[in-house]
Design a binder for these strands. Structure first.
Lengths: 341, 341
DNA sequence: GTGAAAGCGCTAACAA
DNA sequence: TTGTTAGCGCTTTCAC
């Protein structure tokens, strides 16, 4: 049932090479218009579909690019994938999405599979601050762009949210509401998001002249609701606990809500909570979540553009870091602190 | 930098064919143990990675399977993808995920791209009840399994939730609470989910001896919150409106909540709402959503198994339809109907 | 047990 | 403008 280029050529009575030229818009001019027309018609008639594998073998290009995601079920990533697709849709490239499940063994296998398929480039959302795969890929000059997370070593271009600006907005918002004791539930410090937000929090506390002792930090081992609960418990164990919490992401913030609930503290009347990312449904939680809106689609768009640039001109060593502005979305989980008793 | 089989063979001083046999576990026995060892060692040392494209060209297998999803940002699908990956992770196959954005033009292009890559099989989550692509693929005997949605024509094996059982549970739950006027917000009727749930609703109403006139149906044009609001408005425009609504999915149910809110009706005190799918965060909405839990991961697992079977033995004509049981999760959006005034 | 040779489907350089 | 040739990297008969 499979129809090959040779079949089309035979049908028209031309050489396969000629048919090839006719079929490829870039080389079509090397063939007479009538021949081209007849080849196209025959291809259509026979239902010819080029074999990308064979072409790739010959041209040493697969016209596929790999998107490596830590967890597809984390709603942060699909919109980034969408943005990437949006850009790639206009190009000849196909996107292959793989999911590593936050498992380095799986990641290794997935990447091996993509490389074996001769992917022309990678968009990587799994990077750790210190990431052996990224370093190795950079060494081998594989076209690659990091998204959302960056590495400490600036070896590779990256597109992410501006953590500093974002956290600053969140803290300023709380200070403006009257909070002086603001805590931070920090995400995993081996990820640039966790580390960057933590650093930005310390900065913002300092800039607002808040007492460090009033502004404790609890470190969460993972970006999960469970870890958020644990962190909140830790913060509430302190004598004069904070009246507001800046969480490392939305899931941690949801965990904080649960932690407050356990202690019969109300949000926002007793403690305000700010999330990060603005994943779907954050406007539907109870209370609705004040959070920082990460421009997820735009991150994908920008990353895809950078990658296509890099594939088109691999010689340039590009280590640009594009930080996109985030926007604080004020909802129901933040309010003035309770009056001191 | 790329190292090929020929490089490995040269390093060891054997013929490429021999190296090939040594590298492939299935043919390794055709080679002496010492030779095999030396080849493996050299491959390791040189960092050899087989070129899947070249192998696929020769063997006419790509060892990749395509997963076609209508909308990655719909949280229903990533867990299905996870289930698929779980099974494929143990096999030699790699999963390529593509997103059609509910756009048939995009879908056509994506499928063409996958076929051009010689995918060995497809898992399709985009099927319409009457789907030309599915029919065509069935004709060409492409190994394929449908997930979540099925086609009217039973041409292809499919794995989905048991709509009838699920909707029956939902309606019975409401009847048990005392509801007699139960409405349905039906999803798109060109999808088996929308149609099946609608039919199941009618059945359940009949079986419970409820008056058809008291149990109106509003048809939503899409599975979206927006469409849910519109449908709810339509239902509330009726004189003695229903005291409970079975929504075609969770997003429609959320829209129903908004529609009630517009009219200052409370859920569940004035009107109960049941969703479908149990997407993430449905326990966090306000009120928390009573909904039907679709076994998403299991759907993916089962589909992947079916597909691997089918690839292993393409001769069998398998049109099994596996319907997985769903479970009603009772939360805060359902309660007894208000007392008649 | 190993080597030789052919070919998967396609494209790119070159020749006619 | 068209055809010829060679070869991408791999596997697989078939000789040896």
């Amino acid at each position: 049932v499979k129809v090959s280029l040779a079949d089309v050529a035979r049908e028209v009575g031309v050489h396969p090479g000629t048919a090839s030229k006719a079929l490829n818009p870039a080389t079509r001019f090397r063939v007479s218009a009538p021949t081209a027309r007849r080849v196209l018609a025959a291809a259509e008639r026979l239902g010819y579909h080029p074999n990308t594998l064979a072409r790739g073998l010959r041209t040493r290009q697969s016209y596929s690019i790999g998107l490596i995601i830590p967890d597809l079920t984390n709603p942060l990533f699909p919109p980034i994938a969408r943005g990437v697709e949006e850009v790639l849709g206009d190009s000849a490239y196909t996107l292959l999405v793989v999911n590593t499940d936050n498992d380095s063994r799986r990641q290794e296998r997935q990447i091996a599979a993509l490389r074996a398929r001769q992917c022309d480039g990678f968009i990587v959302a799994t990077a750790h601050r210190d990431d052996p795969f990224v370093e190795q890929a950079a060494e081998q000059q594989l076209p690659m762009v990091l998204v959302n997370r960056v590495t400490d070593a600036r070896l590779v271009p990256a597109v992410a949210g501006d953590e500093t600006q974002a956290v600053t907005e969140a803290v300023d918002h709380l200070v403006r509401l009257g909070h002086r004791r603001i805590a931070h539930v920090a995400g995993p410090q081996e990820l640039s998001t966790g580390f960057g937000r933590y650093r930005a929090f310390l900065d913002a506390i300092g800039r607002n002249q808040l007492a460090g002792a009033d502004c404790p930090v609890a470190f969460a081992g993972a970006y999960s609701e469970h870890a958020g609960v644990a962190a909140m418990r830790e913060l509430l164990a302190r004598p004069a606990h904070a009246t507001a919490v800046v969480a490392g992401n939305d899931l941690l913030a949801l965990g904080c809500l649960d932690g407050l609930d356990e202690r019969d503290l109300r949000c926002p009347q007793d403690v305000s909570v700010v999330g990060f990312n603005d994943i779907p449904m954050m406007s539907r939680t109870s209370p609705s979540m004040t959070t920082i809106q990460l421009p997820k689609r735009e991150i994908g768009v920008e990353a895809a553009r950078l990658l296509l640039d890099r594939i088109a001109d691999p010689s340039t060593i590009d280590t640009r870091r594009v930080l996109l502005q985030c926007r604080l979305v004020v909802r129901g989980s933040t309010a003035q602190p309770p009056q001191e008793g």
